[in-house]
């Protein structure tokens, strides 16, 4: 029993260490990451934006792929309102070769992504945000010089069939903050792929 308690404590400790990252209400840091077109992208490059739909996503994960068209739709609907999508691939290309920068370029071209698709090459941004899976959305709202986290979670509540999703979390969250309200829910869980970390 003593050993068991120790084991539990250790496991709880490792879980809490893993659970670092942003919560709703936190200030999010800007980043500078390379886009598939070769340019470096930062949120500071968008002086007119009211916020950002940051989506940690990738090529290989079937859940990310299932949401590709919905990411495009989100950008097309909300970039004109001041909330562009920035897609960030957090995966290491040695751990998951399908998520290499050149494969990202191919996929972005095939799907005609209207938003930047950038690589978190040294795997620091996803850790700072606290992304645990792909796809994982962080909706940010600009307040002065700050980017405030307003919603964390899934795009909607049906990964397999967009037509059957009756809760469009990101869309509802943007509508809420546009009305000056807090999103409800401001946090959702969803099935996704673990982030593929470089083995040292």
């Amino acid at each position: 029993m003593k050993h068991f308690t120790m084991l539990l404590t250790l496991l709880a400790l490792s879980a809490s260490l893993m659970a670092q990252g942003y919560k709703v209400g936190d200030k999010a840091a800007d980043f500078r990451l390379r886009n598939v077109d070769g340019r470096m992208i930062s949120m500071a490059d968008y002086p007119d934006a009211k916020g950002f739909i940051i989506i940690f996503t990738c090529n290989h994960c079937p859940y990310s792929v299932a949401y590709e068209d919905r990411k495009i739709e989100l950008h097309n609907n909300f970039a004109p309102m001041g909330y562009p999508v920035i897609a960030i691939n957090p995966n290491d290309s040695i751990a998951q070769p399908q998520d290499s920068f050149s494969k990202m370029q191919i996929r972005a071209k095939e799907k005609g992504f209207p938003f930047p698709y950038v690589l978190d090459a040294d795997q620091t941004v996803y850790k700072e945000y606290g992304a645990t899976r792909t796809p994982h959305v962080f909706l940010l709202q600009k307040q002065g010089a700050d980017y405030i986290v307003r919603y964390i979670g899934a795009i909607d509540n049906n990964h397999e069939d967009a037509a059957k999703a009756d809760k469009k979390y990101v869309k509802e969250a943007i509508n809420a903050i546009e009305r000056g309200e807090n999103p409800d829910p401001d946090f959702t869980r969803a099935i996704g792929c673990t982030i593929k970390v470089r083995k040292s």
Binding site: E160, R189, G192
Partner: peptide
């Protein structure tokens, strides 16, 4: 169970939804 947000926390509150994920239990432990 496509509406994952409705059930993931019922498996365990520490689960964000990434897989693999494993619950091992015996009674309350």
């Amino acid at each position: 169970a496509p509406d994952a947000n409705a059930w993931i926390a019922k498996v365990n509150p520490d689960w964000s939804g990434a897989i693999p994920a494993t619950l091992i239990y015996r009674g309350d432990r």
